[in-house]
Write a protein that binds this DNA or RNA. Structure first.
Lengths: 181, 181
DNA sequence: AAGATAAAGTTCGATGCTAAAGACTACACA
DNA sequence: TGTGTAGTCTTTAGCATCGAACTTTATCTT
């Protein structure tokens, strides 16, 4: 008898096991959190497949996204990108190096402050972003195909409220998410 | 004038910009997907803080989770863990090495098949898992504090349906998520 | 039985990330 | 003006991961 079955257990089954191991578990909460985490993983795998087809990695995609998201003229300081992506400045330096070599971005010194650097996107970079978006939107539509318009709106609404809680409330020293003011 | 404001734009604002850059965007779908992705990132940051306090990294935590999740006698083959976590077998070898040195897991040859290895969890590993769960459940309750019981159930239900779509349907060659059986 | 094939895990070389130290610029204050 | 101080990016060393080749064991085929 093998030490474990191969396939990943279904979500509800997994929660049930957790509860056996940890009595005080709130199964309702745990279900939401685990579903979120599993969904994000699956989505990233799916995106990764499409990115690979276009010769991009997740790293490059993240940076292109930030540059487009900021709107015209599509410029950011490396430090800003790093902060938003949760990376160190060192990692950004190297990412920009690689993306520069691929012709996806530009890098120049900020004329107003020579210590600063301005990263911009090239036409090719913008084109790549668009191609990925087209592929991604197909996948996302497939993902949500079982939900009605009303359900989609509701889901977006509920998630936004969670996001607001975690983004607007700075956690205190013990990590608690408190007052939103 | 700086090339970009420091703080990350709010979700709705971000979606609006995306739509300016990509006309055909379904804002409803995009809102769900982006909220999901942003939530997962924030959650991982929060977990990371608690893990660091206990001297654990995300890598160790993932492995402990899989071992507990499988139930007694808490044993798995390295390859199974690797598959479920989306890692290569090589990475698992090194993770087990490190966790062995920390006394979190055990490693022995499978008596039924000498090529195979059985990874088990130690009492200390189980205790660490429990400590993390206690911390995590506090954070998760805080995260969901604005939702009523009904809303929590509904959210869990909607997410489960998405998960079912992406986990049960193998994507075809073009990456589409189709028929569920 | 004997050899081919398949499967599991480890080893090896290369890549990308982090933390820490370093270099450079701008600004504050004497 | 000169010096200190803070902020931004780059460099360096160490570590985790991946892809690929290799070792060992079990199973299939004849």
């Amino acid at each position: 008898m093998p030490p474990a079955p191969e396939p990943q257990p279904a979500l509800d089954e997994q929660i049930a096991i957790y509860q056996r191991e940890y009595r005080d578990l709130d199964t309702q909460v745990e279900k939401v959190v685990n579903a979120l985490s599993r969904l994000d993983r699956r989505m990233n795998v799916a995106y990764g497949r499409q990115l690979a087809l276009l010769g991009l990695g997740h790293a490059e995609w993240e940076v292109l996204k930030e540059l487009v998201m900021v709107g015209a003229p599509y410029q950011l300081w490396p430090g800003t990108i790093a902060k938003r992506l949760g990376l160190t400045p060192a990692a950004m330096t190297h990412r920009i190096d690689r993306m520069l070599a691929q012709g996806l971005v530009t890098r120049e010194r900020d004329p107003e402050n020579r210590v600063r650097v301005i990263v911009g996107i090239t036409d090719e970079g913008r084109e790549k972003w668009l191609q990925v978006m087209r592929k991604a939107s197909v996948f996302e539509e497939d993902l949500l195909q079982d939900l009605t318009k009303v359900e989609r709106t509701l889901l977006g609404e509920l998630l936004t409220r969670l996001l607001r809680r975690v983004e607007d409330a700075q956690p205190d020293a013990s990590g608690r998410l408190t007052d939103l003011d």
